[in-house]
């Protein structure tokens, strides 16, 4: 086997899966080579390619935290060929992992600031890694608030995390769904509207948002109303990717390759890119 082959995945074993929602399944995996697992490091926001051999690879954010390295966690929304096959896998099954790839959230420059997380649907995954990282380095950051929304209660992912996040005294957690549902005890309303009601201060704050394009569009408008500048807003982009190392040529937006220059961009950076999302 050749060293430094960026196409060659590490073999990994699925330790555990969680059916988060009807379409989202979470995989906790560990690299088979204990030395490799020991040496593995990544930064919050970086992504990995999961392989189902014979089917292909697909890109997902590593949504566990680098501060908790007993496993790597990926959450997969069923959409295409690879994700459908991944959903059929269970604990003990093998997958290939190519990670870490891409850039990461600038968590260093966020130190000392208030952090506002705004996630919609599967868009909660990239926020989770940064949120956990910050909670594990709690003293470094100011107020932390999370607004997480989904269409309905059953579309809420990370249900095992939510009770802890909601009960912690050192963060604010607001959950919302689009329409009333029986037994739902949290907010009802679209994310941008709930965000305006929460009205987090833009002073010395950073907003980190991810979700479906329509939610992002209106969330941006809401953040603007609240006084957030483009430089204070971060998001992660998704593109069809193959190589993950800037060669295969499909994920570029002008001169930027989402697989190596992203997936994390500030809105100030996105403003400078051609309009081709």
């Amino acid at each position: 086997m050749i060293e430094l082959n960026p196409y060659l995945p590490e073999m990994a074993t699925i330790l555990e899966t969680v059916q988060e929602t009807p379409t989202i399944k979470t995989f906790r995996v560990r690299l088979d080579d204990p030395g490799r697992m020991q040496a593995f490091s990544f930064q919050p926001g970086q992504v990995g390619q999961l392989s189902v051999f014979g089917v292909g690879e697909s890109t997902f954010v590593i949504n566990s935290s680098p501060t908790r390295m007993d496993h790597l966690q990926f959450s997969v929304m069923r959409a295409g060929e690879v994700t459908t096959r991944l959903h059929g896998l269970a604990a003990g099954d093998k997958v290939g992992v190519r990670a870490p790839l891409g850039n990461h959230f600038p968590y260093e420059s966020m130190r000392g600031k208030d952090i506002v997380f705004i996630g919609g649907g599967i868009g909660m995954a990239p926020l989770r890694t940064l949120l956990l990282f910050m909670l594990d380095n709690r003293a470094d950051y100011g107020r932390i608030s999370l607004l997480y929304g989904a269409r309905s209660p059953e579309d809420m992912a990370f249900k095992t995390d939510l009770p802890e996040w909601s009960s912690r005294g050192d963060m604010t957690t607001v959950l919302t769904i689009d329409r009333e549902a029986e037994g739902w005890e949290h907010r009802v309303g679209l994310i941008p509207n709930v965000l305006l009601e929460m009205a987090p201060s833009a002073d010395n704050a950073v907003a980190v948002t991810c979700g479906p394009p329509i939610m992002i569009k209106f969330t941006l408008q809401a953040l603007k109303k609240l006084g957030f500048a483009d430089e204070q807003i971060y998001t992660t982009l998704e593109k069809r990717m193959k190589c993950g190392v800037g060669l295969c040529g499909r994920c570029n937006i002008g001169t930027k390759y989402v697989c190596v220059d992203g997936p994390v961009f500030s809105y100030a950076e996105l403003r400078e890119l051609p309009n081709e999302l």
Binding site: F53, G54, V55, G56, K242, G249, R250
Partner: peptide, 20 residues
């Protein structure tokens, strides 16, 4: 530019890089 696809019967196969 290239594509990457898996070809094979599931038990054994090849991952190919193809002109795209």
């Amino acid at each position: 530019c290239f594509n990457i696809t898996d070809e094979g019967d599931g038990l054994a196969g090849r991952r190919l890089r193809t002109w795209d």
